[in-house]
Write a protein that binds this DNA or RNA. Structure first.
Lengths: 229, 229
DNA sequence: TATAATTTTTAGTCTTGTCTAAAAAACAAT
DNA sequence: ATTGTTTTTTAGACAAGACTAAAAATTATA
């Protein structure tokens, strides 16, 4: 429990605050309405009580709106801050893959640290140096300087039905286990694939990639973003 | 005052700890013998009492040796850790200047943040990407993976006497005021210069740079490293 | 609608890293 | 050798961010 003693006006956010904002940003997109305390705690691997505490302080700072028991929502100021952190994360990922030749399954944790480096000038120069990329190595869009993301109409592979074709444009899950699994099957951003069959009872699929055909579980299909063609 | 309750064995150092180690490393080189509490406090802009506290905890962790009232000295483990931080700092500075085209007076603060990113793989790849540089943009040597620095026989400009010549190989002071001052006089790493005259009573000098001749204060001369030729 | 289960919040504690004020040690000077 | 000054250390407090245990609010269930 924290007792508020002084009001302060600093526009810099701590590492912990930035992580909370980022998490709330992501959770907001998945589920409409306020983001619940437990959902945040789950995603951040902390306890709900810690979340309540922080969320109340963030509300005081004006970056989220929050009513007790009703969950949290980002204000426009909060959303912009969160998008800024995500922008940095994704730009650094591009740097790590394009320039330092890291593999796409190795960059997440390092980018988690780099996203908290504070320097507007740095990120602008990095952006330019990388050729103003629109997507990170996992196909996620990079927010612009104002925090805007152009949304693309992508679907989960699991939403496609038999005979539909498309291009892999991103992954939802970014764990190295999953990414390495995709590598073994030669699936990466830009890979063309088509659905040969879909099983109703377990959601599994048979897909074609190049001249290979193989089985894909529901879980896999729910973590691959496709742009249908 | 901190009470020690549990012994722990983690080999990761916090941001604050890394900064203390780095500071002690630098202070050790300037003055022989243990580094005093006040010296650390001065350099880090903290209070001596905070230093005592931290220094005692660092001693428990085995990275410095410390006797009450006698100052602190890095152990080999501590020195290696400190050199690792400095290695990262300087490699990032090279990146910022060489790749992102920052000016040498703009990189210090950003590198202060980047030096705390934890990833061995990252720094090895960065090193390679930059062409395994030996010196940072200010002429300071970059420690190798094991924390060893090859020492060069450089002198301060203030140590030279009339008619001696040399090449600027580094700066001691790295404030942007000083670096911008040097820029105005076209002095940078690699600049050849010669001492035309030296005034005894105030340590000022007349030097030649290219076809320009100008006056230089004692303070300036004490912050420029020269390799005599 | 009353009760049970779940979610969320409060209260209190802990750790790291900081601070101030005061005590103690070390150094300087008569 | 005693006194004074400086340096260093101790003691106690505070803030951020986390935790546990318990209380309160909400939601689900019968």
């Amino acid at each position: 429990m924290h007792i508020k003693k002084y009001v302060y006006f600093c526009h810099m956010f701590s590492l912990a605050e930035e992580n909370y904002l980022k998490t709330i940003y992501h959770l907001e997109q998945e589920s409409k309405g306020g983001v619940s305390t437990n959902a945040i705690a789950d995603k951040m691997d902390t306890k709900p009580s810690s979340v309540t505490d922080m969320v109340q302080r963030l509300a005081e700072k004006g970056v989220i709106s929050y009513k007790k028991y009703k969950g949290a929502t980002l204000t426009s100021k909060g959303r912009k801050t969160a998008a800024g952190v995500i922008r940095k994360h994704r730009l650094w990922e591009v740097f790590l893959v394009d320039k330092l030749k890291f593999h796409w399954d190795e960059v997440h944790e390092i980018a988690e640290q780099l996203e908290h480096i504070h320097s507007e000038e740095l990120i602008n120069r990095l952006d330019k140096y990388l050729g103003n990329p629109d997507f990170d190595p996992h196909g996620d869009p990079i927010p612009d300087k104002n925090g805007n993301v152009k949304k693309t109409e992508k679907k989960l592979l699991s939403e496609l039905s038999k005979k539909q074709k498309g291009v892999c444009v991103g992954v939802k899950e970014t764990s190295s286990e999953f990414l390495q699994y995709l590598d073994k099957r030669n699936i990466t951003i830009g890979t063309k694939l088509s659905v040969l069959g879909k099983e109703f009872f377990d959601g599994s699929m048979i897909i074609q990639v190049g001249r290979d055909q193989f089985f894909i579980s529901k879980k896999t299909a729910e973590n691959l973003y496709i742009q249908t063609t």
